[in-house]
């Protein structure tokens, strides 16, 4: 019986090993300086890179953070501070529901709100879609971290004459901030890897663009476009893109873990 359980661990890890192996094997050789600095070449021409796509992903997650972080943290503060109100459980429930909505459906939402009225794809629409996806994660993280702050902090602040608002803003929230930052990093890593909600919001852009009201390329959509194309060269670049994506996800994960561990040590004194 124990053997079966150990076997299931192996079964799960085998695809992981496979994926990492293939991504590295196919992707690493295709990674070169040109990949990071050049735009895609026209169909049929070899070479070129994904500079615009990488830049695009950066812009998109920046926009997403702009949308999700203020709203998410504030919402988390509300749920944590006023958990006995009637609104709080409803908000928590809504956040949980939002978490489970398929990313493609969120894309439809962003399309209806930010693409249709303006008759065009845009980076803003893509940023909105990703932001909506990030929101529930940040709400959850903020709420959990605020709950971890020792009550003695709050009591100390209040005893010194602070209002509740001031106690939260100047003592409790800052105490939870490192963990919240970690949560934001993890959420950013997650949305950076999203493709579906961008397909009809940010769409794609072969050229270098930083304009927010125009379609913008992204690493994930570019990988997708290349992967389903019939060109070998583009397949190679798709693998390279996947390598960059996984490296970024891994980097974020490790960073988040290191910060969390540092935090735990701090709290345990």
């Amino acid at each position: 019986m124990s053997f079966l359980c150990a076997l299931s661990v192996v079964i799960a890890l085998v695809p992981l090993a496979f994926i990492l192996f293939f991504v590295l094997r196919q992707g690493l050789p295709a990674l070169n300086w040109a990949f990071f600095t050049e735009m895609p070449k026209p169909v049929g021409e070899a070479g070129g890179g994904m500079a615009n796509a990488i830049m695009g992903t950066g812009i998109l997650i920046g926009l997403a953070a702009l949308v999700a972080v203020p709203i998410g943290i504030t919402c988390g503060v509300y749920i944590s501070e006023f958990k006995t109100s009637r609104l709080a459980p409803a908000v928590r429930f809504a956040a949980d529901m939002l978490n489970g909505v398929p990313s493609i459906v969120i894309g439809i939402f962003a399309y209806a709100v930010a693409v249709l009225p303006f008759k065009g794809y845009s980076a803003l629409a893509g940023g909105l879609a990703l932001g909506v996806m990030m929101m529930p994660i940040i709400v959850r993280t903020t709420e959990e971290l605020l709950a971890l702050v020792p009550p003695s902090f709050r009591e100390g602040a209040l005893a010194l004459g602070a209002t509740r608002a001031r106690a939260v803003m100047t003592v409790i929230l800052p105490a939870a901030l490192p963990g919240i930052v970690t949560g934001v990093l993890v959420a950013l890593a997650r949305v950076a890897g999203e493709t579906a909600p961008l397909l009809f919001t940010a769409f794609n852009n072969r050229f270098f663009s930083t304009r927010l009201d125009q379609p913008i390329g992204s690493l994930t959509v570019q990988i997708f476009t290349y992967a389903i194309s019939p060109y070998e060269d583009w397949h190679r670049q798709a693998w390279a893109g996947a390598t960059v994506l996984i490296a970024a996800v891994l980097a974020f994960s490790l960073l988040a873990r290191a910060v969390t561990r540092r935090l735990e040590r701090m709290h345990r004194g």
């Binding site: 991504v23 994930t220 996947a242 994506l245």
Partner: peptide
């Protein structure tokens, strides 16, 4: 944490 697109690839 592996993105869906990588699984797809």
């Amino acid at each position: 944490a592996i993105p869906s697109i990588v699984y797809g690839l």
